[in-house]
Design a protein around this nucleic acid. Sequence first.
DNA 1: TTGTATGCGTTATCAC
DNA 2: GTGATAACGCATACAA
Lengths: 337, 337
Amino acid sequence: MAKASIQAVAAEAGVSASTVSRTFAKPDLVLPETRDRVLAAAQKLDFQVSRSAAALKSGQSFRIAFLHADTIDVWFNVNVYRGLDSVFHPAGYDISVYSMSNAQDRHRFFTDLPVRRNADAVIVCSFDIDPDEVSRLKDMNVPLIGINTPSIAGLDGAVCIDDLQGMHMALEHLTSLGHRRIAYVYTTSDDAARLRFSAENRLQGLLLAAKAHPDVTIEQIRCSGHEDPTSTALAQLTTMTPAPTAVCFQTDELALPVLYRLPQYGLQVPRDLSVIGFDDIPFASKMGLTTLRQRPQDLGAIAARKAIEAMGGPLPEPRFETVRAQLMLRDTTAIAA
Amino acid sequence: MAKASIQAVAAEAGVSASTVSRTFAKPDLVLPETRDRVLAAAQKLDFQVSRSAAALKSGQSFRIAFLHADTIDVWFNVNVYRGLDSVFHPAGYDISVYSMSNAQDRHRFFTDLPVRRNADAVIVCSFDIDPDEVSRLKDMNVPLIGINTPSIAGLDGAVCIDDLQGMHMALEHLTSLGHRRIAYVYTTSDDAARLRFSAENRLQGLLLAAKAHPDVTIEQIRCSGHEDPTSTALAQLTTMTPAPTAVCFQTDELALPVLYRLPQYGLQVPRDLSVIGFDDIPFASKMGLTTLRQRPQDLGAIAARKAIEAMGGPLPEPRFETVRAQLMLRDTTAIAA
DNA sequence: TTGTATGCGTTATCAC
DNA sequence: GTGATAACGCATACAA
């Protein structure tokens, strides 16, 4: 089972090694009939181009570094990964995932910078990356693309979800149903960098949108990292006076456990309380939660295309992009009581 | 920002390139003080070993192929990935993910076999891989490790969750609470290979365990891929006569939406109906679901260690391993009505 | 369009 | 314990 080299294929096909190389790297530069002969020989010998050798010679690594906050299993991160993969994989790139669960991971990453010479582009996701870190990454001379980064300074491209527009829609939906007392539930946990920004942006979006409605009040329910957010939210929602008639949650993940328990505390949804989430995770549709859909896969795919474009030379066009959230009307919002 | 080569570091440190190489690859073969000098020089020049070059010369690719059914975002798959990464990343390996969402993906993979010469080990997860495919992968002469594979034939190692033991615990728990009429809800969708096996194994486990209790009956509720499983399960659970007093779900994912809707149909949990899930996904604890915990991260880590051992030479020891599920007692089971 | 020659940056093998 | 040297397998400039 000696792994066939490019030489062996060349011999089998009766051509030179360069022709075999070209057949795989730049098929259009080789005569169709030659190409077919080479492909047949390759198939016969079970030949696959060695990525290591190709990488060494070409100076590329065919690896993309994907930096993200928290862990890869959070819904947003893994779906961004899927989007990246849907573009990078067919293009011949592997994705190296670097999870920054805590300050230590992060410190180690930025001192070792294992990405140097080992990535053709860097994708930074939901990351409160500081200017120092940006400049260190830029020193690597590879494209640096952001996804939902708080700032776009120093990036070669970026794509963000439009939290403001999303919350604007949420508020307009609720006010059109007659809601005036609206609560907003969010978390501020230290070890979930992604959530910090979305919490902030979404709150701002809600407050901004509320300015157009002088009679609307927004009550903030803040769940700090130490406590169980479900309990905090339930306690507040059931005891506030005057009681809100609608509540927006920073994320579906936060909303769903509360939605489940509300009946136990005498609140019928949507009769007594309208509920809106954010994200549209799979459980949201299964539980009928009205929510704002964002598609992390799309963000990932857009970022990947920008990266590929930037690797080709000039900066991607457009460099910065914003994607709208979509209001999914389901069973948890109704006319105010 | 010319990327420093190993030569440059050697010059800076006043040693030969070989010594620099050794400092990174086999630090114990080099004198501590020499090592410090080299490390200092490397740090100064921002040097990192080129994985491509190292790979070419050493004959390894430093890549692991991770084949899984369905998509990477399903809870089980992404957590297996985390487990793999926790072992492979520190060991210097990157993971290339190959998602087999459908027959076409799979066919393409096995005809192209992009993994040939480009992976040092193959991990196959939740895969109804057939003998032909196993032998094609084995031809690559790299370790082949399975995770929750239906068969272990031809694999160099494998680790599986003990579905039978898990369901045995579930049944004993329920019978000890006085339940005698127990339902089991499962899905059979074509495009979710993982679920097919777990559905089958878990059902068998339940039936097997029930043999010890002649007065216990197991009613199967099968949700085919075309219909909404939540509706099917609810319809059956609320209309069966005699009504079951407890229900086991194949997965938490299946259980939770049903759990949410049961009160709407007049069934209080656990007063009228006890509910047990399987997996212990994050929402299970948030919603108080009694369930069987499995830890895909552990399976991934175990598989990764077996792979590394097998790459070293002999077969891993033990070659095949089974991990127990753990019963998490929460709020959805109680004494039979 | 295809073949020839060369070198990418590292590691393995051997001396020393 | 360290240094010199050759080779890993391919892609590219250049020649044909």
